[in-house]
């Protein structure tokens, strides 16, 4: 009902504001929000009981260490508390909390990877990571090493523990700003304008960063996951 009313309002009353995507997104978020009456976002005291176990299992499935998973869950709740005012109801509380947790997991993996690497090697790795996207093509713009075939359909891939584990590891290995841009876009669903404001970069710059991030993630997954499949 709410959705129909919003569609009517946007199309008939305010056609200049009409965006089917925004309308559907808001409508879905509202209906999901309405169904979440048992654990409202404005009552942080209930968060741990309502979402703690799910977040913990999610973290554990990515980091494989119980005490680190517990710490990440605690950090997630504390970060959520700080940014509670920014929660605009664009998603459910659970989705919002998981998005924060995903950032925490990638930050943790990055820290771990960087601890094992000296600063000089790190700078070289970041530069090489950028170059590897360009060097993946020959001078005529053709593939030098074409993408390999990934076995199975997407659902089967996501079911494989190794796939998700390696994906997060690869996210942690990306240069920091690239990873940040990628996560803001794909996990938080920010628009180009919002990413530009968050990172203080131009639209063109954000698209280049996202392109490099996607290409490097793909390469990293292919190198580590397909290798582990053999």
């Amino acid at each position: 009902m709410y959705l129909l009313h919003t569609l009517y309002f946007n199309i008939v009353r305010c056609p200049e504001n009409f965006s089917i995507f925004a309308t559907l997104k808001t409508g879905i978020a509202m209906s999901e929000k309405q169904s979440e009456t048992t654990s409202p976002i404005d009552n942080p005291a209930t968060w741990v009981d309502a979402y703690g176990d799910f977040l913990y299992r999610y973290a554990l499935s990515r980091v494989k260490n119980t005490s680190i998973a517990e710490d990440l869950v605690q950090e997630t709740f504390l970060a959520a508390l700080k940014s509670r005012r920014n929660f605009q109801g664009r998603s459910t509380a659970r989705t919002w909390l998981i998005a924060i947790l995903k950032h925490k997991i990638v930050d943790y993996i990055r820290k771990k990877v960087r601890e094992q690497t000296s600063d000089k090697v790190e700078l070289r790795l970041d530069a090489a990571a950028g170059d590897s996207v360009d060097t993946g093509f020959n001078s005529r713009g053709g593939w030098k090493s074409p993408p390999a075939k990934w076995g199975g359909n997407p659902t089967e891939l996501y079911e494989q523990k190794e796939f998700m584990e390696i994906l997060y590891h690869c996210l942690g290995e990306l240069p920091e700003r690239q990873a940040r841009a990628f996560m803001l876009r794909e996990i938080d669903g920010l628009t180009t304008d919002e990413i530009c404001k968050a990172l203080g970069i131009s639209a063109t710059n954000s698209w280049v960063m996202l392109y490099r991030a996607r290409m490097q993630l793909r390469q990293c997954l292919e190198a580590n996951w397909l290798e582990s499949e053999k």
């Binding site: 659970r94 989705t95 996501y158 998700m164 994906l167 996560m183 794909e186």
Partner: peptide, 10 residues
């Protein structure tokens, strides 16, 4: 890749 990072399933 897009689908996988958005996934909430455990």
């Amino acid at each position: 890749l897009r689908e996988a990072v958005r996934l909430e399933k455990i």
